[in-house]
Design a protein around this nucleic acid. Structure first.
Length: 188
DNA sequence: GCCACGATAGTG
DNA sequence: ACTATCGTGGCG
């Protein structure tokens, strides 16, 4: 029996619940018949319009509007002019939140390292042009169910210092502590 | 229009 | 520690 595709209802919960629950699940990208897959080992929650680290903090701007929509949709953006980052929209419509997929263990067809959010997108061939706004569970992108990791660790999120201590301090980064594929080679 | 800056990654 | 590289969004 092959693992179930996670339904939209899985994502229609607060990002802080969905983020740890995504650890151990398998991200699949179907690239013109080529299957690329990786087991998710690191995520971050971006929770609501009050979260000053979230792209949704300024309201539904053209880029962030997708986060205000229904759960289970991909939010892909370009950062530093070079790296794409893949999120899954979570929560109820109108409440902007999302989970950033930061690292995974390669399973099949990966083109590059899957450590770090930009690298993960590159490894699976995920881009803003092609995938932003796509419903997960369709012909291009989906997440398969998988066992919960033995040990989950929560830490502060990466690269959000400018949001201020109140938001940077919150432990909304979640790791499969048993995986060697989490990002931050120098323990950051 | 204009421009400062970023949920990064690779090099030194 | 330093910076490449370009889309986004604040501001005028």
């Amino acid at each position: 029996m092959s693992p179930a595709v996670l339904p939209a209802a899985f994502f229609a919960r607060p990002a802080t619940e969905v983020a740890p629950d995504l650890l151990g699940k398998v991200l699949v990208r179907l690239d013109d018949g080529v299957r690329r897959a990786a087991r998710i080992v690191e995520t971050e929650a971006y929770h609501g319009p009050d979260d000053q680290a979230s792209h949704a903090r300024r309201g539904p701007t053209p880029r962030a509007a997708i986060m205000f929509g229904p759960a289970g949709v991909a939010y892909v953006y370009l950062i530093y002019g070079r790296s794409h980052c893949l999120n899954v929209v979570t929560g109820a419509p109108g409440e902007p939140s999302a989970v950033l997929l930061r690292a995974a263990e390669p399973i099949e067809g990966c083109l590059h390292s899957t450590r770090g959010p930009g690298n993960l997108c590159r490894a699976l061939g995920v881009t803003r042009r092609r995938h932003d706004g796509l419903v997960l569970g369709g012909a291009e992108l989906l997440v398969l169910d998988g066992p919960v990791p033995d040990m989950i660790v929560a830490t502060p999120r990466i690269g959000v210092e400018s949001a201020g201590p109140r938001w940077a301090r919150r432990r909304w980064r979640f790791l499969d502590a048993g995986s060697g594929w989490v990002s931050g080679a120098r323990g950051r």
